[in-house]
Write a protein that binds this DNA or RNA. Structure first.
Length: 544
RNA sequence: GCGGGCGUAGCUCAAUGGUAGAGCGCCAGCCUUCCAAGCUGGCUGUUGUGGGUUCGAGUCCCAUCGCCCGCUCCA
């Protein structure tokens, strides 16, 4: 049947509309006009998400695969609190690294991280051009030629740095002495002093100014972007009571590392798994649920001996990539991509690497968006906590087999549950003008929110009773739906939009020979099946 | 945070400054023997919110909130 591929923007729009219409995903607080970056899962969405999380937990914690060493992989679970002692976030680096002050240019409106402005300035074309024109090396700095600078400002500077004070005024704005802290125009200056000088107007407030790397314009004061949500524990709302909602679930695992090794019989290598909410106050939530401020992570910290990092890293990259394929992301829209050196996080610089499992979403097309990151985090986090909590060496793991005491390294496969759901939705969405609904959601049967629809062909002649009985028999094992209302076509159409892979229909023939029809969602084919074999049929297709 | 766009029924959209409507959907009943058929009836709105102008505002003005797009951010 024809699968028409709509333009990507149109496809996303239709998918969002379907999610709302059929009860997959609603905007949070819609009743009050909504709230940006927060989403609610409806009756179908919660089943889909639950199927995803259950599959993850089952395939990684209950029945993990065999590792590269030939031994069964061992993973145990935890479920940690969302709010933790503030010192956790100081130790992990989030309290500083997650709080980047930003500055904005008042002229060209560009936004920069305050700590990056000078690096950007040194690389800026207009700064290089200006320096070449008016600075000559002298001692530890430069001699500054004010006349050459003014000349540049009246010519090339007009195009290269239209926001710069020197360009807008051309008359030297400030005596160099005031801006540069030196005593004369030809004094030895640094690049920084020269830039302060050309960027500052006479009588300007907060002088001296640092110019905008883009246009030379005036930058605002640094402003804090709160990337972690603050909250206050206890009755009194003061600084001592302040902590954060966790921005990742991983720190709960690290903070419990010793509890787990002390209370279970796990031995390295082993993993600790957790599924839970995390919170990031993103500057710009965008693209439906892809970048939300409240989201759910599925994370494993897999603890290993440092010498085995490379093989475990490769193992987890491959295992996780194959897992996403196994639940239905089989198209070329899924890929595994190794990070370049520059992309690596602060904690992963020394490690075996980081890879992303990425999905080509309609809104990232032709690019890809991250679904899961597999990172070698080295022993960064355990060391940080060992130092911060005062336990130090005592937090080291004692490896009996190796007779060695060490901080284990971790390989971290960290997946986004909401992004996973979104990828499943995007992959399943299929326009099909050939069928009444016009669209069908082709979920993998294991992920489908409703596994089967059970219908009497018409609402009489004893058919509803047979359907009802079958429904009650199946629902203890699978999420199935029984529907007797309206004509059969409407009921099939609704099941297509919900992505239900199978429908069982009781008809006249059922009354005489105890068979019913199975209708396949993807092919629209039908075949007859004895009622007694329905359970075996579903177990075969879906698993129990 | 900045700039631009947009807010009318669950959805798609009408309504010259003059009584807020249609189609679809949804619900109930009848009907219906395999793909949103038909008939009858029903449901749905503080026109995002609050001010202002006006005899009268969905429509004009101001403010505010929210959403979308771009800039930016995303360990």
């Amino acid at each position: 049947m024809p699968d028409i591929v709509p333009t990507t923007a149109a496809k996303m729009e239709k998918l969002v509309a379907l999610c709302r219409r059929r009860g997959f995903i609603f905007q949070s607080s819609e009743l009050y006009g909504g709230i940006n970056g927060f989403w609610d899962y409806g009756p179908l969405g919660v089943e889909l998400k639950r199927n995803l999380k259950d599959a993850w937990w089952r395939d990684l914690v209950r029945c993990p695969p065999v590792g590269p060493d030939g031994q069964p992989v061992e993973v145990v679970g935890v479920d940690c609190s969302i709010i933790m002692n503030r010192r956790v976030w100081e130790a992990s680096g989030h309290a500083t690294g997650f709080n980047d002050p930003m500055v904005m240019c008042k002229h060209c409106k560009k936004l920069f991280r305050a700590d990056q402005v000078w690096d950007l300035l040194r690389a800026a074309p207009w700064v290089r051009a200006l320096a070449e024109k008016c600075l000559t090396p002298a001692g530890t700095g430069f001699n500054f030629q004010a006349r050459s600078a003014a000349q540049w400002a009246m010519t090339k500077g007009k195009k290269m740095a239209p926001g710069l004070a020197l360009v807008r005024r051309t008359v030297a704005p400030l005596p160099v002495a005031d801006a540069a802290g030196t005593s004369g125009a030809a004094e030895v200056v640094s690049l920084e002093q020269m830039l302060h000088y050309v960027a500052t107007e006479p009588g300007g407030a907060n002088a001296p100014h640092t110019p905008c790397p883009e246009c030379g314009g005036v930058l605002t004061e640094p402003r804090q972007f709160n990337l972690m949500f603050q909250t206050f524990v206890g009755a009194v709302r003061d600084d001592d009571a302040m902590t954060y909602l966790r921005p990742e679930t991983a720190q709960g695992i690290f903070a419990n590392f010793r509890n787990v090794t002390d209370t279970t019989r796990v031995k390295i290598p082993f993993g600790i798994a957790q599924i839970g909410k995390a919170f990031r106050n993103e500057v710009t939530p965008r693209n439906f649920t892809f970048r939300s401020r409240e989201f759910e992570q599925m994370e494993i910290e897999y603890f290993i001996h440092p010498a085995t990092a490379a093989q475990w890293y490769r193992f987890w990259c491959n295992t996780r990539f194959q897992w996403w394929q196994s639940i239905g992301l089989t198209s070329a829209n899924l890929r595994l991509r190794e990070h370049s050196r520059e992309e690596l996080a602060h904690y992963a610089k020394e490690g075996a690497g980081t890879s992303d499992i990425e999905y080509k979403f309609p809104f990232t097309e032709p690019g890809f968006g991250e679904l899961e990151g597999v990172a070698h985090r080295t022993d960064f986090d355990l060391r940080q906590h060992a130092q911060a909590c005062g336990l130090g060496e005592k937090l080291k793991y004692f490896d009996q087999e190796r007779n060695e005491r060490y901080f284990p390294h971790v390989i971290e496969p960290s997946a986004g549950a909401d992004r996973g759901v979104l990828a499943l939705l995007c992959e399943a969405y299929t326009d099909d003008p050939g069928r009444p609904s016009g669209v069908v959601m082709k979920f993998h049967p294991r992920m489908a929110p409703i596994k089967a629809g059970i219908f009497p062909l018409v609402d009489k002649d004893g058919m509803p009773e047979i359907a009802e009985k079958l429904y009650h028999d199946l629902r203890a094992t699978w999420n199935v739906q029984c529907d007797v209302k309206q004509n059969i076509g409407k009921r099939y159409a609704r099941m297509d939009e919900a992505g239900t892979p199978y429908c069982f229909t009781v008809d006249t023939q059922t009354l005489s020979d105890q068979t019913l029809t199975v209708r396949y969602r993807d092919t629209l084919q039908q075949e007859r099946l004895p009622i007694g074999q329905v359970r075996a049929f579903l177990r075969d297709k879906i698993g129990a």
